[in-house]
């Protein structure tokens, strides 16, 4: 469904992504792992047709996707109705006067007659139904995240790209999010640098290494069991500990930073 071939990207002189190629089939749940600064967010923005990669191609259902290609109004409408991106900073997505308007923005743009009804439905599904008349700016971080999700899901996309959706959530909300995503029928790619969450977000893992290339594409469990590659991805590091008078070294995974 989504196909990336040889995607590289640089900001000025800095290499952000190096020759990334992978495909995602309909219905897959994929988790995109990588240490901070390995280019996860940029990769999602490229896959969402927001940034033109320096080299390489993105295809969605066979159609080329890039800012240039999406200047075509019909193609833009088709793609934006099917593929949605949740930004890491939910504030960047919120601009409407009320939560109801925020969620109804997409359907209204498409001229759907039942825009408000849909918005109410998805607000309830995500548990923000009681805030419909409030401005989204005043909500807590977790609630903003849910409003953003509702605003994306209201268009019933086929492909959902989620950029660190758990970063701003407390453990209970994180548990809720994991269950909620598992119940969704659409294809989901979720980025995280939180290893303990990875197996719950998908069975297939894409891992970006510190050289900004694709370090692993395969089972989550297989990757998490591979100490060498966890170290290489900078997702694990070695600690010195003291037990009494004996000093020794540990491998360590930091989940909550």
């Amino acid at each position: 469904m989504l196909e990336l071939t040889g995607v590289s990207h640089r900001y000025g002189a800095a290499m952000v992504l190096k020759e990334i190629s992978f495909g995602v089939e309909a219905g897959e749940k994929v988790v995109l792992l990588g240490a901070n600064g390995t280019g996860k967010s940029t990769l999602l923005k490229i896959a969402n047709g927001l940034i033109a990669p320096s080299a390489g191609q993105v295809r969605y259902r066979g159609e080329a996707i890039s800012p240039g290609a999406l200047r075509n109004a019909a193609r833009n409408r088709r793609f934006r109705g099917r593929a949605a991106l949740l930004f890491q900073n939910p504030d960047a997505m919120l601009f409407n006067p009320t939560v109801l308007d925020e969620i109804a923005f997409g359907p209204r743009q498409l001229g759907l007659a039942d825009a408000e009804e849909r918005a109410r439905h998805w607000a309830a599904a995500l548990g923000v139904g009681r805030h419909l008349d409030r401005p989204p700016f005043g909500l807590s971080g977790g609630e903003k995240q849910k409003v953003c999700l509702a605003a994306l899901l209201v268009l019933e996309p086929e492909l959902l790209l989620l950029d660190e959706p758990a970063a701003a959530l407390d453990p209970r909300s994180t548990g809720w999010l994991v269950d909620f995503l598992a119940g969704l029928r659409c294809t989901v790619i979720t980025t995280t640098h939180n290893l303990s969450l990875a197996p719950e977000l998908g069975r297939r893992a894409l891992v970006l290494g510190e050289d900004h290339g694709l370090l692993h594409d395969g089972g989550v469990e297989a990757f998490l069991g591979d100490r060498e590659r966890l170290l290489a991805a900078n997702l694990m590091h070695i600690h010195r500990h003291r037990h009494g008078l004996v000093e020794h070294r540990h491998f360590h995974v930091h989940d909550w930073d």
């Binding site: 969402n48 927001l50 109705g81 949605a84 504030d91 997505m93 997409g106 743009q109 498409l110 994306l152």
Partner: peptide
């Protein structure tokens, strides 16, 4: 960076020209 995200988020959420 946030400024760029505000701009891109609107593009991403808009099936039609905002």
């Amino acid at each position: 960076r946030a400024h760029e995200d505000f701009r891109l988020a609107l593009v991403s959420r808009s099936p039609r020209r905002p």
